[in-house]
């Protein structure tokens, strides 16, 4: 599904280049649940953003379902991720001026889906996440966990092939975090490819593969079971 070859991301300051990512090679198969781990500044978020096509690498190849993303311009990338990728953020990033219902339906609007067809799709997710009663509230009227549920619902409403999550439970307390992770597991079980960035070993256990980044390199790329056994 995703192939990264010799991917590099650096920032220039004067004549100096400082690398955030260097020589990244990665193969993601459809249906995998991958966790990216590493210390602060290791390049986790940057890698996720490049995979999510919000950012572009300076060097190297990025193939997504045999499309050569590294050759795409911004507009074509938008077109691609609009159809295949959903995002979940640590800070939820809901639109403050939209209700829960409207936040969830936004991606559908941008895909040109008619209001009549949007309704059942949104209703289904509200139901599934148990937030039907909250549908007319605004984000600032919700708890963090509820906001993240909305964020997740919004990410998956377009039935993306790939779900990217950047510290999805980072702002939540344990119980709320667990709830979100369980939903991730469910989605994974249904066949969705998921890549998450997290500091939490516990959250990593929900996935089936862990990638350790260190100073922009891939230090380790292991099966979850292998790693757990090792520890």
């Amino acid at each position: 599904m995703i192939q990264l070859k010799n991917l590099e991301r650096y920032y220039k300051s004067g004549f100096q280049k400082s690398w955030v990512l260097k020589g990244i090679n990665l193969d993601v198969k459809q249906g995998e649940f991958i966790t990216i781990m590493g210390d602060s500044g290791a390049g986790k978020s940057t890698l996720l953003q490049i995979i999510g096509m919000l950012d572009a690498a300076n060097k190297g190849e990025y193939n997504f379902f045999d499309e050569e993303v590294h050759r795409f311009n911004e507009k074509k990338r938008t077109e691609l991720y609009k159809h295949y990728i959903g995002f979940v953020f640590q800070a939820y990033h809901l639109i403050d001026d939209l209700t829960v219902y409207e936040n969830i339906e936004t991606p559908l609007i941008y895909r040109g889906i008619k209001s009549k067809e949007r309704k059942p799709l949104v209703a289904e997710l509200l139901d599934r996440f148990n937030i039907v009663a909250k549908k007319d509230l605004f984000p600032d009227q919700l708890s963090g966990g509820q906001q993240q549920l909305v964020g997740l619902a919004r990410a998956i409403i377009g039935k993306p092939k790939l779900l990217l999550a950047d510290e999805p439970t980072g702002n939540l307390h344990t119980k709320q975090g667990e709830e979100i992770m369980k939903l991730f597991k469910e989605l994974h079980a249904e066949g969705m490819t998921i890549i998450q960035v997290t500091h939490s070993e516990k959250n990593a256990e929900y996935g089936d593969r862990i990638i350790y980044l260190e100073d922009g390199y891939v230090r380790e790329d292991k099966n979850v079971n292998e790693l757990l056994e090792k520890n």
Partner: peptide
């Protein structure tokens, strides 16, 4: 700006 960012992530084009 935040709204713009999120909308873009949600699939909005600039023209929209």
């Amino acid at each position: 700006a935040k709204e713009v960012g999120i909308r873009k992530v949600a699939g909005s084009f600039k023209g929209e």
